[in-house]
Each structure stands twice: as structure tokens, then as C-alpha cells.
Design a protein around this nucleic acid. Structure first.
Lengths: 156, 156
DNA sequence: GAAGATTGACTTATCAATCTTT
DNA sequence: AAAGATTGATAAGTCAATCTTC
């Protein structure tokens, strides 16, 4: 090939391998950090949405997190069971619920955010600002090439 | 801060957010590509190991993929059910099984590898060789900072 | 009919407990 | 006791089917 001289050539497949292996470790690291603080990633993501946006319909939570409605039902069930969020009837639409974060939920999510930030610091903090900028640029480039039209949930 | 002039400062938390969101999409893309070819990522990973290394004890498969033994039992069950792999008693250790890929398994995994390579091409192929090299460097740097001692499975 | 939510069935991953063999 | 494998329980995600309401 013309590129034979490039000793450090990395194929898309190589990158994929590296990426997948690293992700497996990062995922567990972040999840463990959250678990230690009483929330999982999934539960924290929902609670964050509620903290930022106020009471939300489950369909909107799902859309915001790009999750299936099914997953939201379960997650809200578990948050409600633990008293971190509550379902209220939507006065404007009797099909829907408005899910709201509770005061204990606020407290919990604040602690979890700190734990998450610490985990992210542990993972990405060793990079220089320059490296983080480059990494962000690459992630965005990959994202764009994979789905030029990001908004769509998923083809069915 | 001294870095006030850097307009594109990206915090570890920002990177984490970007990373997690992108992963959610990449994961589904790869998984869909594999599914279309009769294998999931999880099943393909195990089958690849068997293709590369010949018959293996389940504990070795688990160690190679950094998965819990529990996951291997289930995955091998499903591969065996579909005739893609088979358990044979380990002549040297009556506690263990040797898991071997079958001929249909070989055929299936070859097709799946092609599908996976195509997906990786779709995801990372738009990057220049230079960008892929940079990305690989960053992934390795992150991996090193997260777990200097990579070999360990997981603290318990 | 479409939209919001729930439910059932499935996959992939975990931990903890158990059983057998080393 | 430790190691290999299985099993049960749980979590997070998917799709497909269903029920109620718009």
C-alpha cells in the first residue's frame, strides 16, 4: 500500500477494538462510583433531567435520554419505590404522568453528581486541556459521521 | 484562572457527557450490525476467542474478555443451543469444560466479523489516518490513567 | 388512528451462593 | 481451602403487544 511507511497506522477495526475494551472498564468504574452513592447511572440520568427541567412526562424523559419508554417505566418505578421521585397525574392529559423529583431525590442526586464528577476527573483529568480539546473534537467528528441527523430516536 | 484565554476549555465532566452520549449511539449501531448477521456482540466475542485460541475453558474465556464467569455460562449455553459451539469435558480436569467452536460457528463468526468491520469502518472510517492515530493515543492514555495495572479482573 | 404508559419476553452484564473437584 | 462451573436474583437496555386516552 502507499501507506506502508506509516508504522503506526491504526485501522478502524483496531480503533474499535481499543474503544470497546476501554469502554468496558470505564463503564464499570463510573457505575461503581455512582453505586457507592446510592444511585446507578441510569437512575441518576433520569433524576438529573428532573432536576434540570422540573416535572416531566415519561415520554419526554425518554426522548431526552434517547431511551426506550420501557426503560423509563422501570427506572421511575425504582425511583418512586425509593422515594426519590414521584408520579403525579398530568392535569392536561389523562394518559400521562408528570414525574417529579422529591426532596430526598434532590439530596441524593447532588451527592451522585459529585461522585460522577470525581469519576470523570479520575478518567479524563489526567489528560491535558489540549488533549481534552482534541478528544472532544474527535468525539464530535465521529458522532457527526455516524448520524448527521442526530435528532432521530431510532429507526423502526 | 490562568486558562481564561482558552475559549474551548473542555472539562472532564464535559468530556464524560460527550463520551457517554456518543457511546450510547455507537453501541446500538454495532449491535444492530451484528444482530443482522445472526450474532450479538457478546456471542461474537466469545466465538472469536474460540476461533483464535481453539477449545478453551470457560474460566479462560472469561478472563480473556474480562467478563464474569456467570456471563460465560449463559453465552455458551446460547451458542450451544444454536449449534455454534459445543462443550466437551476437559480430560485433564473433571471440574471444567472445554468449549469448542463448531463448523457452523466458524461460518457464522466469519460473516459477523465482516459485519463488525463494516460497522467500525462506518464509525471510524471517516477519520483521517492521523486522527485515528491521535484517537488511539488518547484512548491508551485514558486506559493507562484509569488502571495502571490492567491485568486485574475486578476488585472484590 | 396515534400517543402515553404499562407489561411480557429477551439479552447482557453484575454479585453472591452453591456444588463438585482439585 | 481454592478453583471451575452453575444457579438465583438484580439492573439496564431492547422490541412488540396492549390499554387508555387524545
Amino acid at each position: 500500500v502507499a501507506n506502508a511507511a506509516v508504522s503506526t497506522e491504526v485501522s478502524p477495526a483496531d480503533i474499535g477494538q481499543l474503544y470497546l475494551e476501554l469502554h468496558h472498564r470505564l463503564h464499570r468504574l463510573v457505575d461503581d462510583a455512582m453505586n457507592a452513592n446510592g444511585l446507578s447511572m441510569a437512575r441518576a440520568k433520569v433524576l438529573c433531567q428532573l432536576l434540570d427541567n422540573g416535572p416531566m412526562k415519561q415520554a419526554d424523559i425518554a426522548a431526552g435520554l434517547r431511551l426506550a419508554a420501557r426503560s423509563i417505566t422501570d427506572t421511575v418505578d425504582s425511583l418512586e419505590r425509593d422515594g426519590l421521585a414521584e408520579r403525579r397525574p398530568d392535569p392536561g392529559d389523562r394518559r400521562a404522568w408528570l414525574v417529579a423529583i422529591t426532596e430526598p431525590g434532590r439530596k441524593t442526586v447532588r451527592a451522585a453528581m459529585i461522585a460522577k464528577a470525581k469519576a470523570m476527573e479520575q478518567i479524563f483529568g489526567s489528560l491535558t486541556a489540549r488533549q481534552r480539546g482534541d478528544f472532544a473534537t474527535l468525539l464530535r467528528a465521529i458522532g457527526d459521521s455516524v448520524a448527521p441527523n442526530q435528532g432521530e430516536p431510532r429507526a423502526r
